[in-house]
Nucleic acid binder design. Structure first.
Lengths: 147, 147
DNA sequence: TATATAAAAGACTAAAAAGGTCATAAAGGT
DNA sequence: ACCTTTATGACCTTTTTAGTCTTTTATATA
């Protein structure tokens, strides 16, 4: 249950590479695909979508490529994940008002709502910066991510 | 992302009906399917699996049918969900030791681990009893499930 | 023992989603 | 012009989802 697709993994690896680059440096899709170990034309699709959604900026021709549209501190993991996988919704019941006929009586509903809130808030709390900044060694203590 | 399948929904609705019955009362698959509004032969598969996993007990022939194998207070939503959907694993990386080559360097890893722990602990904290016992009216306050 | 009743098992299917690939077009630089 | 690089859209294969249907096996009861 709840599995990230390959597309999602690829997307994260790709954009994370971009975030690891010195600010403003553009990267070619073939470069990103190489480093992130993702089929090139598949990653291209993913990044074209990122560009549409305003997560990255693209430019064509010589010297073109991709850059983050905003600083890595201002892009959350939630945005990236939702960009590729769609909204985080553990159950059809939660997609929108009236989507589920049972809504008012269903006792499971609030449980899924809570799951949704929990997951969203975890992913919202992590930026690309957090992820591309190398973690301190485990025995140094203070691992922000493990609860 | 993270969507419960129809099978998962059906499973929950079905077993919840069983949990709502006076203890020890058997129900026919056709009865459960009717009440839970699930295609009968599909639900049959689901319940055969539940039986194998020891969530319900089945008996054939006249007077046969299905009963919960344990009291509703001792079956968690986690068990039910994992019985149909498999383990709760937000990312391939988390399925087992060595499943992911990047494991030691991947900074996203701990985030998924945390998501997994959160979700599992929410679902583990809810029993079929909690779900079949009707909730108090919303304005009575104290809704245990909404955070 | 024959019969009706119910779940168990397994084969089968259609439709959708996942996971790509490829050819061509359009834009930008030299 | 020509080369580089992204954009777009058509296409494809494999896997998963969401079932159905038939046959078999177990059980109670007349």
């Amino acid at each position: 249950m709840m599995e990230l697709t390959r597309k999602g993994e690829y997307a994260i690896r790709g954009i994370l590479y971009l975030a690891s680059l010195p600010g403003g440096k553009v990267a070619l899709i073939s470069e990103i695909a190489g480093v992130a170990d993702v089929p090139k034309s598949f990653l291209a699709k993913i990044f074209q979508n990122f560009a549409k959604l305003g997560l990255v900026k693209s430019s064509r021709g010589t010297g073109g490529g991709f850059v983050l549209a905003r600083p890595a501190t201002q892009i959350t993991l939630r945005e990236v994940v939702e960009a590729v996988e769609g909204p985080i919704v553990p159950n059809r019941c939660l997609v929108g008002k009236g989507a589920c006929a049972r809504e008012s009586t269903c006792t499971v509903h609030p449980v899924w709502r809570k799951v949704q809130n929990e997951v969203v808030s975890i992913l919202e709390g992590i930026t690309l910066e957090d992820l591309s900044r190398e973690r301190g060694l485990p025995d140094k203590g203070e691992n922000v991510w493990m609860s």
